[in-house]
Amino acid sequence: MHDIVPIDYEYLRLIWWLLLGVLLIGFAVMDGFDLGVGALLPFVAKTDEERRIVINVVGPVWEGNQVWLILGGGAVFAAFPLLYAVSFSGLYLAMMVILIALILRPVGFKYRSKIGDPGWRSKWDMVLCFAGIVPALILGVAVGNVLLGLPFEFDDTMRVFYRGNFFQLLTPFALLAGLVSLSMLVMHGAALLTWKTSGPIADRARTFGRFAALAAIVLFALAGVWVTYGIGGHVLTSVVDPNGPSNPLGKTASVVTGGWLANYTTYSWMILAPILGFVGTALAWVGFTARKPAITFITSAIGILGIIATAGVSLFPFLLPSSISPNAGLTIWDASSSKLTLWIMLLVTCFFMPIILAYTAWVYRVMRGKVTGDSMAKNPNAY
């Protein structure tokens, strides 16, 4: 029977691995500054007007930015269904904590302005801060646990069994990964505030941004050392057919200390990921110091790209290793949907993604400029 898909299964799997990375990085860059701004709200804004300015920096765009998270979840569900099943089962409680925080954010935006009482508004400001810190931290903890491997296994009928619990996710390395995530998103939020505000808010954001950028560099380096010498990385010990059927039990794998560094020897170009992570974050620190807000924001985004890409390329070809059954770890070669499904999804993505990007660019062009007390007074829809 003639194959109607003109691209090899191997390349389709690689394309969707790259697209998944793009969507995750897009979420971290676009919605990441929303989380960072929320985390900084009580610290960079002291008066009610200042806090309204900070809220209105992200108020018009946060809903659109969350689309990246929805797209990422949809891509995992459709392109790598086994990854979706195992990760959402194992990280169920962690995902619920994130969802609760994300639900509280719009509630905080809407309810804060309903009553003028300072106590009422202060409580909702703390809710918005919570809704910024918790997802940033827990998402990093999740990535840390992916690098460690989750305790799952399959039986002979391909039923998955998860052997862990929520508190087992809070290991020292995973918490370190969470702090890397929190510091880089706080840096990114501060970069946006220095760009979109002025006066005392921008000055305070600049101070916090410098500290967060420095913390991100140090913590990222510490995580790299820990990955090299402190945790085991998974490596394939059998030949896997990139064009073969999706069967996680059709391979063998082992755990080797420093194994996540093997890709940097096999694929030397991957070293660009950690370089971008360090250089982008360092240049963001320079941008804060030199008071160059646009450059700071761009370099902060580059730093986030590099840090997240480092985790992705270090894991390749693994998507989700198993800490108790290395042979059951999911890779891009054995956890994907069918060839035809990946092809149809690719066509749909090629049609809709440019529309989403064009609309997003148009929205940010309309919303350009600094947020001030005067601009809020002229806008009846301001929070």
Rank of each mutant, 00 (worst) to 15 (best):
I324A: 10
I344M: 15
L222F: 08
V227G: 00
L23E: 01
A136S: 13
M95H: 12
I298V: 15
G199N: 11
M376P: 01
V57C: 03
A174Q: 09
G306E: 00
G32E: 00
A177V: 13
G149S: 03
A221I: 10
S246C: 00
T257D: 01
G199I: 13
G250A: 09
I356V: 14
R291V: 14
Y162Q: 11
K339T: 04
V54H: 05
I217C: 07
P60Y: 05
V239I: 11
T157M: 13
S325Q: 14
D117L: 14
E50Y: 04
F80T: 06
G144W: 00
I324E: 08
S325V: 14
I100H: 07
E63R: 06
F77G: 04
L20S: 03
L150W: 01
V256A: 03
D241N: 04
V313A: 02
N247A: 12
M95K: 12
V58Q: 01
T331N: 08
A294K: 13
D156Y: 09
A142Y: 11
S375A: 05
N65K: 09
H2Y: 14
R291S: 13
F352I: 15
L182E: 05
G178W: 06
A191S: 12
F88N: 15
M187I: 11
L20P: 00
V107W: 05
L128Q: 12
T47E: 04
F211G: 07
N263M: 03
L179E: 05
A282E: 02
P106N: 02
S89F: 06
I298T: 13
L276R: 04
F152M: 10
S300F: 03
F318W: 08
T341D: 10
H2V: 12
V235H: 02
C129Q: 14
W195F: 14
W333N: 11
P118N: 10
L20Q: 04
D8Y: 11
P274V: 03
S198K: 14
S325Y: 08
I295Q: 10
A290K: 13
I53L: 11
A174K: 01
G178M: 08
L12T: 02
G233K: 02
L272W: 06
I324Y: 10
L169K: 07
L71P: 08
A212V: 11
G329D: 01
W120T: 14
L185M: 14
A382G: 07
M345T: 12
S181M: 09
A205E: 05
W195Q: 14
T341K: 03
A45N: 05
R121Y: 00
S323D: 10
D8G: 11
F43E: 04
V76K: 09
R51F: 05
G277H: 02
S183P: 08
L357V: 15
V225G: 04
V146R: 00
R52F: 12
W120P: 15
V141Y: 00
T360S: 14
L40H: 00
I332N: 10
K339P: 05
Y92W: 09
V255E: 07
L179V: 13
L69H: 10
I115R: 12
G244W: 04
S113P: 05
V255Q: 03
I55V: 15
T171L: 05
I308N: 02
L128I: 14
L147Y: 01
L346Q: 15
S89G: 15
V235L: 09
A253K: 01
A101N: 07
A79D: 06
